[in-house]
Structures are given as structure tokens and as C-alpha cells.
Design a protein around this nucleic acid. Sequence first.
DNA 1: GATGAAAAAATTTGCGG
DNA 2: CCGCAAATTTTTTCATC
Lengths: 153, 153
Amino acid sequence: MSTDYRIDNLDKAVLSALQADARTPYAELAKQNGVSPGTIHVRVEKMKQAGIITSAQVMVDPKKLGYQVCCFIGINLKAAGDYPEVLAKLQALPQVVEAYYTTGHYSIFTKILIRNIDALHDLLVNHIQCIEQIQSTETLLSLQQPIMRQIQP
Amino acid sequence: MSTDYRIDNLDKAVLSALQADARTPYAELAKQNGVSPGTIHVRVEKMKQAGIITSAQVMVDPKKLGYQVCCFIGINLKAAGDYPEVLAKLQALPQVVEAYYTTGHYSIFTKILIRNIDALHDLLVNHIQCIEQIQSTETLLSLQQPIMRQIQP
DNA sequence: GATGAAAAAATTTGCGG
DNA sequence: CCGCAAATTTTTTCATC
């Protein structure tokens, strides 16, 4: 799962293409890079083995599934040690799609996808702010997401 | 690209599986759901047509590519109208992997993946804080990302 | 609409350089 | 480590229900 592996330019080119479209045929990548499909296959397998490639996922448009609101909730805890319990409770809320343990303005920083503002209000009041270890929260509503991309290999 | 389409339970099951692994064979999804492979194919195509499925991407582990630091930079602008110019400048920085136009504590909120703290310091001082329309920034360093998942269909 | 088998395409394997 | 080509698996199509 985690052999060390130094990637070369071919790996980078393959990875870039697959980050954009995981279903790019190996034959096409082979032609673009002047190697055989078998070589592409070997490189992809190595990058999986090395843990560089973690998965292939179909991405969805949350709005098309009825999740109209994207926001961030910054959380401050009463005590730093309360982190594990709070995290477990956040994990149980499917609308919490990301959570980070952070230094700076907040202890825990979360990204939320939720149906609408009413549902957000309910989530905040009835599921988050009522967690006893939480001291305060701050909500940043996202109006637009103009940049969304993967890191360049 | 954007026909309206109301998804049913079969669509949801297929979508969930493909969100976890975009390469799940249609034959397997067919067996799991008691339908034929042809039906799975039709459903996936419909969800693509409807814009529900936007892409299939290979995901990478940023740390394995040498991006050891993940952080967020909240940005406040001198004037709200400066948003487009600032965004264009952020777009040119490949380490800015996400940007959101937000209400609340910041005008623009960004997610950054970068090699190390020295590179972060350079990015902040020499590429972000020197953008003239920016009034102030605030950095949240991520120590850990305990939750990372897609929204449930 | 869904089926299921047939056709087409892509992936994977293994021998040889 | 790479290339080639055969073997396997998967996707896609289509006549039929």
C-alpha cells in the first residue's frame, strides 16, 4: 500500500490526465506519451501501490441532488481535549462532508453541504450548537465556488 | 448536459457505489441490484446527461506528491468590487486548489496545498499579501483531516 | 423502460528483448 | 524496465419483450 516511489515525467502526465478523467483509455495515454498501453498500466499500478493514487471517484453536482447550500462552520471547543467526542458527533451528520483539525481562528473547521437555509438552521441549532463541548460556532456561507481543482503532480 | 431528471433508488445505489469506486463493473452493480448490465449503463448515461455525474477523477494523496501542508487562507478585500481581479490572480497560483466567495468573516476563502511551511510563507508574502486589492488575510493551518467524503445521493 | 446476448473496446497478463 | 500481442474483462449496442 505504501512503497516509496519517485514519480517521473511519464507518471506525472498519466496522473494529470487521470485526475481530469479517470476513464481516459490507456491506449490514448500510451499514444500521447509515445509508449505502449502495457507501460501505462504498469505505471498506474505502481502509483496505486505507492499510495499516490488513492481511489477513482465519480464526482457529482450537489445542487443537482438537491443540496443547494454550501457553507463552512468554524467551531471553537471549550477544551482542546474534547476534540474526539465532538468529531464523532460530526461524523454522524452526513451533511458534514469535510472536517479539519486546525490551528488559528477555529479548533475544528467543517465544510457542509445541505438542502437549504432552513435545513442549515436546523443543523446548527439542533445538531451542532447543542453539542455540549462546543463553545461557539461561526458560519461562512459560500455564494460561489470559482476555483475547484486538484493539486498538480 | 442539463436535462432535469428525478433519481430513484436504483440510481442512488449506483451513484453511491461509483462515488466510492468509479471503476466498479456494471455487471457487479447489476447483480447487486437485481437488474441487467444494460440497465446500469442506461442509468449512468442518464445521470451524466442530467449533469448529476460531472466527472470521474482519480484522487491522489497530496502528501505522497510532496505537498505536506494543507491550510486555509481567509481573505478580506478593500472593496467588494475587487473580487474578479483578485480571483484571477489566485487562479494563477496552482497551490490554490479551492476558492469560495463567502459571506461572513471573509470575502474570499481559499484552500491551499503546498510543499512546506517555507513555501507557504513565500506564497503568503510574495504572492498573496502583495495583491493590492487585498486588505488582510488570516491563515488556518490544518493539522489533520478526519472527515473527507462525498454527499450522499 | 428493461433484458440479455452479441459486438466492440479496454484492461491485464506474460513472453521476449 | 519496456513492448508486443494474446487472453480476459468490461462496456456498449440492439433486437426483443
